[in-house]
């Protein structure tokens, strides 16, 4: 991932969409393993890209965000209390906002 794809200011951007405590994640992978979707690195993949501010990657895989069942199991079992489920919702809002602004991208 090239330097210009990383944006340490992203947490600030995401604040508008209610990111909560997601940046506390220490990447243990618990959320991936409990997620009923059983789907690759989801949802940690999204959390990780959010931590790095790799928005391009988030938007590339944005459709995955809507697979989330919002069941809350990841948030309930997250050892860091990072509430990954809430981050997914925030990223949905962020993505919708992006689509609204740049409908053709």
């Amino acid at each position: 991932m090239k330097m210009d794809l990383i944006d340490p200011e992203f947490p600030k951007t995401l604040e508008r969409f209610g990111a909560g405590s997601a940046f506390e994640c220490f990447n243990c992978g618990s959320c991936v393993a409990v997620c009923p979707l059983v789907s690759g690195h989801f949802p940690r993949k999204m959390i990780r890209y959010a931590q790095l501010g790799a928005t391009e990657k988030i938007l590339r895989d944005a459709k995955d965000l809507w697979k989330c069942l919002h069941c809350g199991l990841c948030s309930r079992t997250c050892p860091r209390g990072a509430d990954p489920g809430e981050l997914i919702l925030s990223l949905r809002r962020f993505t919708l906002d992006h689509w609204k602004r740049w409908p053709n991208v």
Binding site: P36, L37, W66, K67, L69, C71, L73, T77
Partner: peptide, 25 residues
């Protein structure tokens, strides 16, 4: 507190995914 999702919420975006999760439950 540790219940598993039936997959219901996925029905509007992906009935297929819904079915996978549902079958496990």
């Amino acid at each position: 507190e540790f219940t598993n999702c039936c997959g219901g919420p996925a029905e509007s975006v992906s009935p297929k995914l819904n079915r996978e999760v549902l079958d496990r439950r």
